[in-house]
Amino acid sequence: MNKLFLIILAASISASAHAQKYMTRTGKITFDATAPKSPEQIDAVNNEVAAILSAADGKLVFQVPVRSFKFQRDLMQQHFNENYMESDKYPKAEFKGGIEGKDAGIASTSGSHNVTVKGKLTIHGVTKEVSVPGKITVADKKVKLEATFAVKLEDYGISIPNLVADKVGKEAKITVNSELTGK
């Protein structure tokens, strides 16, 4: 029994030593919420996204400071923060989840892999389960995460008044393009 104890102890130590993590504070997320026939583009870029990926088990978290979304028009940015996202009340959007199924540990293998990421997405104080297809590219102590998915604004308690319904769509297309480096 003592031997088993030692083996488990050794295994646990070696496992945590191998728990390689990748991180960024300058990840990029963009979104486009332009209504189909809108005369102007409703899109924004955020270059201050923080994320950590734990390579061995594929656990992944994102933190998005809402105020860091930059719009082409300052007025849109004001309205986005004040009326739609209420960023004073909900300063961050978050994702907590991981790479699904047998691919969970895939970030330990270099190359480009198509994966599905599942987890809880919190926007505007509302949390929903999401499942998102994406691409993960591992090379040279860096991991690149790419994904495109759509969220229904309604699902996250963001209401668009009729006045701007011809410009702001019911869905926002979110594009993640972030490079994480090994810690």
Binding site: A11, S12, M23, S54, A56, K59, L60, V61, E94, K96
Partner: peptide, 16 residues
């Protein structure tokens, strides 16, 4: 050992 092996997403979030 499994907890050490894979930190929970909450731990990762507080790390962030």
């Amino acid at each position: 050992s499994f907890a050490g092996y894979g930190q929970s997403t909450d731990d990762l979030m507080s790390e962030l």
